[in-house]
């Protein structure tokens, strides 16, 4: 059981690492948010699961942290992306379409 838990911990930690690597490598804010939030959510969930396997008496509290993260993480990234878009943060030149900007300009 300990071994399986430790492997899950390692898997989760590698996802955290990849998320941060994405944060460094991606060209603009929106892609950074994508790389950052997705990988860290799964990474943390895996770490929580691994910890629950190693220390079963903590599972309830770990579950609480997991549920909480699952709801707040995407929300904070959405709010951030929206804020970045409203304050007109530079987009990468690779961006092909931006419907949101077109619609916002039409309204104003």
């Amino acid at each position: 059981m300990d071994i399986i838990g430790a492997i899950l911990l390692l898997g989760g930690a590698s996802f955290l690492f990849l998320g941060s690597l994405g944060l460094i490598r991606m060209p603009d804010v929106y892609n950074r948010i994508q790389a950052g939030t997705k990988a860290t959510t799964l990474g943390t969930l895996l770490v929580l699961l691994g910890t629950a396997l190693i220390q079963p008496q903590w599972s309830l509290k770990l579950l609480l942290i997991g549920v909480f993260l699952l709801f707040t993480n995407p929300l904070s990234s959405q709010v951030l992306a929206n804020a970045a878009h409203r304050s007109k943060v530079r987009k990468s030149e690779l961006t092909s379409i931006d419907d949101l900007e077109a619609d916002r300009e039409q309204q104003s």
């Binding site: 911990l9 955290l16 941060s20 950074r32 951030l80």
Partner: peptide
């Protein structure tokens, strides 16, 4: 905005760090 994203990721990673400390 980039800094805030980095800060967000840092706190989530720090939560994992705290769990490692607990372990």
């Amino acid at each position: 905005a980039d800094r805030v994203v980095a800060f967000d990721v840092m706190t989530i990673v720090a939560i994992t760090g705290i769990i490692f400390a607990a372990l």
